[in-house]
Amino acid sequence: MTYTRIDLAALTGSVVTRIMASCAEVSAELTGDALARAGCSKLPSLRAIDHHPAEHPSALVAASPHVPLALVRLAYALNDLGAAGVVLPPCEECGAQKRDLPFSVESSRVVYDEFLVTRGGDVNAVIG
């Protein structure tokens, strides 16, 4: 299935609406700027951001490590742009709020060091 620009625009609009509904302090313009800044304006990221808040409306206002990576990037972009009320997602293991939570263990975001610990320090498990 291919998406047209209209479909992408409609999905972007849906994401903006969901983000504004979940965080009252965030405007449509700020959300659009944050999507661009976070590199989340393409289909996979938009889908992840659209689906997650639909099931978890408080995803941006409650600290939870159970979010897609695109939502982590969006939360930090919103924070960088001065959005009030946005809570940054923490690492599931250590609780650190870091911009880069690239790894997922049992659907939770974790930092690199914690990912290695959960894999027994096996770097090949990270790479492979």
Rank of each mutant, 00 (worst) to 15 (best):
V16S: 05
T17D: 11
T17G: 09
T17S: 14
R18K: 15
I19Q: 02
I19P: 02
M20V: 14
A21Q: 12
A21D: 12
S22W: 09
C23T: 04
C23H: 00
C23F: 04
A24E: 15
A24Q: 13
A24R: 13
E25M: 03
V26N: 00
V26E: 03
S27Y: 01
A28S: 14
E29G: 08
L30I: 04
T31M: 08
G32S: 00
A34E: 12
A34S: 10
L35I: 08
L35D: 03
A36M: 08
A36L: 11
A36Q: 11
R37W: 09
R37N: 12
A38W: 10
G39C: 00
C40A: 14
S41L: 15
S41C: 15
K42L: 15
L43Y: 09
P44N: 06
P44H: 05
L46E: 01
R47I: 12
R47N: 12
I49D: 01
D50P: 06
D50G: 06
D50L: 07
D50V: 05
D50S: 14
D50T: 07
H52S: 05
A54E: 06
A54F: 03
A54G: 05
E55L: 14
E55W: 07
H56M: 13
P57L: 00
S58F: 05
L60I: 03
L60V: 04
L60R: 04
V61F: 07
V61K: 04
V61D: 00
A63M: 01
A63V: 02
A63D: 01
A63F: 01
P65C: 01
H66M: 07
V67T: 08
L69V: 11
L69Y: 15
A70L: 10
A70E: 12
A70V: 12
L71E: 02
V72L: 02
R73K: 15
L74W: 01
A75W: 02
Y76N: 09
A77L: 04
N79P: 06
D80V: 07
D80K: 08
G82A: 04
G82H: 04
G82Y: 04
A83P: 02
A83L: 07
G85T: 02
V86D: 04
V86G: 00
V86F: 05
L88A: 00
L88F: 03
P89K: 10
P89W: 08
P89Q: 11
E93Q: 11
E93P: 04
C94E: 08
C94K: 09
C94M: 09
C94H: 08
G95N: 03
A96W: 06
Q97T: 15
K98R: 14
D100Q: 14
D100C: 09
D100W: 13
P102V: 10
F103W: 05
F103G: 02
F103Y: 06
S104Y: 04
S104W: 00
E106C: 00
E106Q: 02
S107A: 14
S108D: 07
S108H: 07
R109E: 12
V110K: 00
V110E: 01
V111I: 10
Y112H: 15
D113E: 13
D113V: 10
D113P: 11
E114T: 12
F115M: 15
F115S: 10
L116D: 08
L116M: 13
V117G: 08
T118Q: 15
T118D: 09
T118G: 14
R119Y: 10
R119G: 07
G120M: 09
G120L: 12
G120C: 13
G121K: 07
V123Q: 13
V123N: 11
N124K: 07
A125R: 06
A125Q: 10
V126E: 12
